[in-house]
Nucleic acid binder design. Sequence first.
DNA 1: TGACACTTAGCACGACCGTTCGTATTATTC
DNA 2: GAATAATACGAACGGTCGTGCTAAGTGTCA
Lengths: 204, 204
Amino acid sequence: MTMRDRLFDEGIQILSRDGLAGVTIGRLAAAADCSKSGLFAHFKSKQQLQIELLDAAAAMARAHVVMPIEALPSGLPRLSELVNRWLGWSRRAGLAGGCPVAAALFELDDLDGPVREHVMALESEWRCLLLALVEDAIAEGHFWQGVDSEQISWELCGIYLAHHASSRFLRDKTAGERAHIAVAALFNRAAQSTASNHIRKATI
Amino acid sequence: MTMRDRLFDEGIQILSRDGLAGVTIGRLAAAADCSKSGLFAHFKSKQQLQIELLDAAAAMARAHVVMPIEALPSGLPRLSELVNRWLGWSRRAGLAGGCPVAAALFELDDLDGPVREHVMALESEWRCLLLALVEDAIAEGHFWQGVDSEQISWELCGIYLAHHASSRFLRDKTAGERAHIAVAALFNRAAQSTASNHIRKATI
DNA sequence: TGACACTTAGCACGACCGTTCGTATTATTC
DNA sequence: GAATAATACGAACGGTCGTGCTAAGTGTCA
């Protein structure tokens, strides 16, 4: 295993456990057992390092979540399996902590710069994929025609974040079950032509 | 205005904008226009400072979200108004950034210590309040008797997190509308005796 | 064998980190 | 008016931060 591979491996672990702020040059160099300057030869700056690590994490997610579902039948089967693989993917991918992108959303919400823009691109790409799968489910007739696909994918993201907070911070063992119930209820709503799916003004 | 007040004011703003990691002794001292050692006389350690600032933020949330709804009729009216005030409370309370507690959930998920335990206590207290209001709505007959109150409050937290990420990171103007639609759909589901509310095993 | 790229280490830099110390100013109490 | 407590200050500590510069391997090809 080359030095660069070891830097990526250790870097993603630290990123997952301690977030972007935890990935410091000194710590990563010590974890990968090399000097700070040796590390610095690979990544020209700390921002570059952060961006490349986030990309590597996103590639892991793609390999564990997206690639395995591409052969499945379009529509609800594919979407359901994606969500199943999405929830808690980081643990199954061998990461010590949680999803680095989700954590970055809350870490960089008010801190502008190239890293934030990069996370924005990753997150947008993901939400586009989610939206496309929901629209496939509509096209296949698994969801009601008039359903608001952006609303459904938005709420899926909410369930994912609730699962992250519940399982990782609160360390609630029932988080997986709660998330699956919420997803089932959401899909059930999307399959029916209820008023909830196209109201524009909340009635509460 | 006393020095201590200024330290709290500036501290909560930094905490809201840049998270716990952004609240550094030097930065806060500069923002409040005092020396580092002068600041240190008020808070015996950095952890103490972090904990007191989180408490102050929680107190702000209580004043802006919880206190105003206590006089409202029990059940759905009180719960609905609480959720309305909860979503985006930090901006209305005058904070420059987002909800500090929500951000701390993702920042400290794998970092043990007294600060994490304090955030855990604040979050647990909040979820208990949410749960109690949902159960009031059941008792008042606004929600179906057999509804899983913990599931409903869990999903409410998900909508809150989605709203945070959507409005603060993605800076999506429609976040408020999306959240209200999701809440209305959730309350609608809770009001009906559908299967979605008590399935124990997801059907997906 | 020697020249050449590439990788890594060693070292030093200025800046900021949390923290402690001694001290000067100010307010309160006897 | 003197003693005491509270408050804020400047200076300094040992560390770590991100970032450069220089030099020493290391393998490839002529």
